[in-house]
Design a protein around this nucleic acid. Structure first.
Length: 564
RNA sequence: UGGGGUGUGGCGAAGCGGUUAACGCACCGGAUUUUGAUUCCGGCAUACGAAGGUUCGAAUCCUUCCACCCCAGCCA
């Protein structure tokens, strides 16, 4: 696997190193704070690389913290999957934390706020609450509960926790400003009643803190210095700062007292063309079985990409490549493909594989002879060694490398034409055998015995070079070739994204053939099928009896491009 | 009609008052090549959302305007 590029400069790094230089903070501390309510995708990878990467580069630390304050959506399964994905990308968290571990502390801070007259228990129902909130252009108005005295608030809040009230009957609100132009500041709810089982806290609680209250405090407790999040939280920064300014944290989890509060910085989301990140839509794709599951290799979930054959390094390089700015970006698929090609070009073993086998009989080659060519596993990297490639009278070539009636610039095989079998001999096509339906089933060719080792006796150049596998010991393998899942660059914007599913996003070649050496490969190995693309074993469906290989990405193909 | 953001080539992205306006992807040429791969060379914005202004000098400063994104969950 390749090294990852060092992350480039961007505005967050400048701010952070500036803060450290000026002594605002002693060292960098970040966190990646997913809610365990789904699987990670490429967009999360950007955040992971930003948070963990920055800490790595600046000699800081980064926590993995689950922002698990909504028991109705979260589960252990998601949490485990997220941990695996972060680890797979190659990052190590300083601490594994859970917001749910802070529930007791959070409750205490809420009490602090009430005691200061900065929070109150409200009995408005959801609809009234919305009415009182005002609109984008009109200020809200104070709830009648806003004037409730501190003692009563304390009592009510304690009874909320004790389970004396129904869901939705009371909430705890911060007392800020109902006429703030920033709607987030219009007395935001910080606790609600929910009789739901929490995947970690169990049934210990029936009140749960809201994001705005929880997140900033969690950061502060963990000693986070820079709290990086996406653009849509810009308005929330005001409440983030307000909460931290109005509570007193005696000592954080690191044992620090009087530590400087964390600073929230927002960055733009990444969108990938021809893909979907919306959780709801992905669930639909999975449930309606348009894809095989959350780890379908056509999905840009991290598990999908992993199964597809993407390496952690390629994803980290991709994230370094797309940059970090304050605007939402739309990244072209080729950037992702470029990242994995760069990695695999250097690291993948070269091997011969034929997706659509066409039998070639070499009529002037002896029937009972097998010879062996010693070939390189990598054209440039000698350290990757060599392997033996067997050759005999019958071989398979790819149907795409033969054309009955080719254009002049097609320099592969066709009737009467000569082509080189890579690493082997030059052959000329004499006969094309068809079946009753006119389907080509076999080619009869003649080889030039003096054409081994890339030479020819008369010095003639052979332009066309094709790959092949020896029929006698070829291994059968099912190969799955993937294309973009959608036919539109932004399927999420369409009314009916299901209608935009690319019918050719998965093509299965059940009878593909690969050279014998693949049998002894490690399940984790990646290959380049020369002239075809990069492949890996499918982690779910491949077994020793039945090999299944996924095409991670094709090779660049100027010939195919020219044909379009 | 409120508030918060963003606008540099097809897509990303540097640039922070004086640069020929980096770089990556894509694209177009050409060289090398037993992968039509890789590699290598070369091309690719008189132009920085628009219009004014300040200045000897602006993508960078000021003004106005325009476009797009986010915010009215007891989601995060």
């Amino acid at each position: 696997m390749n090294k990852t590029k060092s992350s480039p400069k961007h505005f967050i790094r400048s701010i952070a190193s500036n803060d450290i230089e000026r002594g605002v903070y002693e060292g960098l501390y970040t966190r990646f704070p997913p809610e365990p309510n789904g699987y990670l995708h490429l967009g999360h990878a950007k955040s992971i690389c930003l948070n963990f990467g920055l800490a790595e580069d600046m000699g800081g630390r980064c926590n993995l913290r689950f922002d698990d304050t909504n028991p109705e959506k979260e589960s252990i399964e998601y949490m485990e999957s997220i941990k695996n994905s972060v680890a797979w990308l190659g990052f190590e968290w300083a601490h594994l934390r859970y917001a749910s571990d802070y529930f007791e502390d959070l409750y205490g801070f809420a009490v602090q706020l009430i005691e200061k007259g900065l929070a109150y228990v409200d009995d408005l129902d959801a609809e009234q609450m919305r009415e009182y909130r005002g609109t984008l252009t009109e200020p809200g108005k104070n709830s009648p509960s806003r004037s409730r005295d501190i003692k009563e608030n304390l009592d009510l809040f304690a009874r909320m926790r004790a389970g004396e009230f129904e869901e939705g009957s009371y909430v705890l609100r911060a007392k800020i400003d109902m006429s703030s132009p920033n709607i987030v500041m219009r007395d935001p709810i910080i606790y609600r009643i929910r009789y739901a089982h929490h995947y970690r806290a169990g049934d210990a609680w029936c009140i749960y803190p809201m994001y705005d209250f929880t997140h900033c405090i969690s950061d502060a407790l963990e000693g986070v210095t820079h709290s990086l999040c996406t653009l849509e939280f810009q308005d929330n920064r005001e409440i983030y700062d307000w909460i931290l300014a109005n509570i007193t944290i005696e000592e954080n989890l690191l044992g620090d007292k009087g530590r400087t509060m964390p600073r929230q910085i927002e960055f733009g989301r990444m969108n990938l063309e021809y893909s979907l990140a919306s959780k709801r839509k992905l669930v639909q794709l999975v449930n309606e079985e348009h894809v095989s599951g959350w780890d379908d290799p056509r999905l840009t979930s991290l598990e999908g990409l992993k199964r597809r054959g993407y390496t952690p390094a390629s994803i980290r390089n991709f994230c370094a490549e797309i940059g970090v700015t304050k605007k939402d970006s739309v990244i072209e698929m080729t950037v992702l493909e470029n990242a994995i090609r760069n990695d695999l070009e250097a690291s993948a073993k070269r091997v011969f594989g034929v997706l659509q086998p066409l039998k070639v009989v070499i009529t002037n080659y002896p029937e009972d002879t097998t010879e062996s060519f010693t070939v390189k596993n990598h054209p440039k990297d000698e350290e990757m060694g060599t392997r033996e490639l067997s050759f005999s009278r019958e071989v398979y070539i790819d149907r795409e490398d033969f054309m009955m009636d080719p254009p002049t610039d097609f320099f592969r095989l066709s009737p009467g034409k000569e082509v080189r079998l890579r690493y082997g001999y030059a052959i000329t096509c004499d006969d094309v055998i068809t079946d009753d339906a006119g389907e080509i089933i076999e080619l009869h060719c003649r080889y030039d015995p003096l054409s081994a080792k890339g030479k020819t006796a008369d010095g003639r150049k052979i332009k066309g070079i094709i790959h092949w596998v020896n029929a006698a010991d070829a291994i059968n393998v099912e190969t799955r070739v993937y294309d973009r899942l959608f036919t539109a660059a932004n399927p999420g914007a369409a009314d009916d994204f299901i209608a935009l599913i690319n019918p050719n996003s998965l093509q299965t070649y059940a009878d593909a053939k690969v050279e014998a050496s693949v049998l002894h490969a490690d399940p984790e190995d990646r290959f380049q099928f020369e002239r075809v693309g990069y492949f890996c074993f499918d982690s779910k469906d491949s077994a020793s009896g039945k090999l299944v290989m996924n095409r991670t990405v094709s090779l660049r193909d100027t010939w195919a491009k020219q044909q379009r």
